[in-house]
C-alpha cells in the first residue's frame, strides 16, 4: 500500500489497458476463490452479493489479477484487464455500449466500457448494478448466456465476446428499496457468491494488514465491528463496514487516539441519531482505553 502513497503523479490508463498489476491483498473467508475460478473457467457470470465495504470490489480485483492471461507461453500471467463501472441511476444502455459523437467531419463512434471489455476479453465489473436503468438489462441478457453476444444496436452490429470476457455484477440486497430489486430473469443468469463482513478473527487480520497496526488494536476494532453490527436495525443499515474499521485503524496508525479515531471513522460516519451515536460511543469507550 505504501507504494501507492508514494506515487508522485497520477497514471493514466486506457480503460481496456488497465489491469491490476500488483497482487491486491485479499483474505479468503470461504471457498469464494475456487468458486470464482471455476466459474471463470466455465465462463459463468458471477453475482457478488453483500453489504457495502465488505470487500466485493477487492475480491474482483484480486481475482482479475489471479486470472491473468498467460504471457507468451510459460511463466507469470499478465493480469487480466478489469473494467469497473459504478452504476448509478442515470446510467443507460448507451453509457455502457457506446455512442456517436459529433466532430468536424460528422460523427464518430465511441465504444462504451462494456463493448471494450467484450472486445478485449476483460472482466467487466458492474458495481451496484440495480442502480442502473432498466434498459441495461437488454444488454446483459444476451451476454450472460451461452451466446455471449453484445448487440450494438446503433451501429447495427453484434459483437461476440472475446474469450477472456466475463461479466461480474455486484448487488447489495440490504439497502436498495423493494422497487430496485434485481429482476429474476436477470438474477438467474448468474451464480451468486454471498459476502458478509468477515468473522472477527478474519476481520482482525484484514484490519491489521490494511491499516498496518498491531494485532491488539486490530482485534479491538474487529470486536467493535461485531458489536456495532448488533445494532443494525437502529438506522445503521448493515452496520459498520470493514472499510470504515480499516480507516479507523489507519488513523490510529498515524497517532490518532483510538477513541477519537473510532469516533470520526465509525460513530459519526454511521449515524446522525444522537442517541445511537451515544450508544456506539459507549461501546467504543468500553473497548478502547
Amino acid at each position: 500500500m505504501s507504494e501507492t502513497s508514494t506515487r508522485q503523479e497520477a497514471t493514466i490508463w486506457q480503460a481496456e489497458e488497465y489491469s491490476v498489476t500488483e497482487e491486491p491483498y485479499y483474505l479468503p473467508i470461504g471457498d469464494e476463490i475456487p468458486l470464482f475460478e471455476a466459474a471463470y473457467e466455465q465462463r459463468i457470470p458471477v453475482l457478488l452479493k453483500g453489504p457495502t465495504g465488505c470487500g466485493k470490489t477487492r475480491f474482483v480485483e484480486y481475482m482479475a489479477h489471479r486470472l491473468g492471461k498467460p504471457m507468451n507461453g510459460a511463466g507469470d500471467n499478465a493480469p487480466r484487464p478489469l473494467i469497473t463501472v459504478a452504476c448509478h441511476e442515470d446510467l443507460t444502455a448507451s453509457d455502457l455500449v457506446g455512442r456517436y459523437l459529433l466532430d468536424a467531419e460528422g460523427t464518430r463512434w465511441i465504444d462504451g466500457p462494456l463493448t471494450r471489455s467484450v472486445k478485449v476479453g476483460a472482466i467487466c465489473y458492474l458495481d451496484e448494478v440495480v442502480e442502473a436503468r432498466k434498459d441495461t438489462t437488454v444488454l446483459i441478457h444476451p451476454l450472460t448466456d451461452y451466446r455471449r453476444l453484445l448487440p450494438v444496436e446503433k451501429q447495427g452490429q453484434v459483437v461476440e465476446a472475446a474469450d477472456g470476457f466475463l461479466l461480474v455484477i455486484s448487488y447489495n440486497p440490504g439497502y436498495q428499496s423493494a422497487l430496485k430489486d434485481l429482476k429474476h430473469s436477470t438474477r438467474q443468469r448468474f451464480i451468486s457468491i454471498e459476502f458478509d463482513y468477515p468473522p472477527r478473527e478474519h476481520e482482525m487480520e484484514i484490519i491489521q494488514h490494511e491499516a498496518a497496526i498491531d494485532a491488539g488494536l486490530a482485534g479491538d476494532l474487529a470486536k467493535l465491528g461485531e458489536k456495532v453490527r448488533n445494532l443494525r436495525e437502529h438506522g445503521l443499515g448493515e452496520g459498520v463496514s470493514t472499510r470504515l474499521l480499516i480507516y479507523a485503524g489507519k488513523l490510529m496508525a498515524k497517532g490518532i487516539s483510538p477513541r477519537r479515531a473510532c469516533q470520526v471513522a465509525v460513530t459519526w460516519s454511521l449515524t446522525d441519531d444522537h442517541e445511537v451515536q451515544r450508544s456506539i460511543e459507549e461501546v467504543v469507550t468500553s473497548i478502547f482505553e
Binding site: 458489536k227 448488533n230 442517541e275 450508544s279 468500553s286
Partner: peptide
C-alpha cells in the same frame, strides 16, 4: 436507559 439498552444490545447481540 435507551443508550444503555443499545449498548447492551451491541455487546450481547441480543
Amino acid at each position: 436507559g435507551e443508550v444503555l439498552r443499545m449498548y447492551c444490545k451491541a455487546l450481547t447481540g441480543r
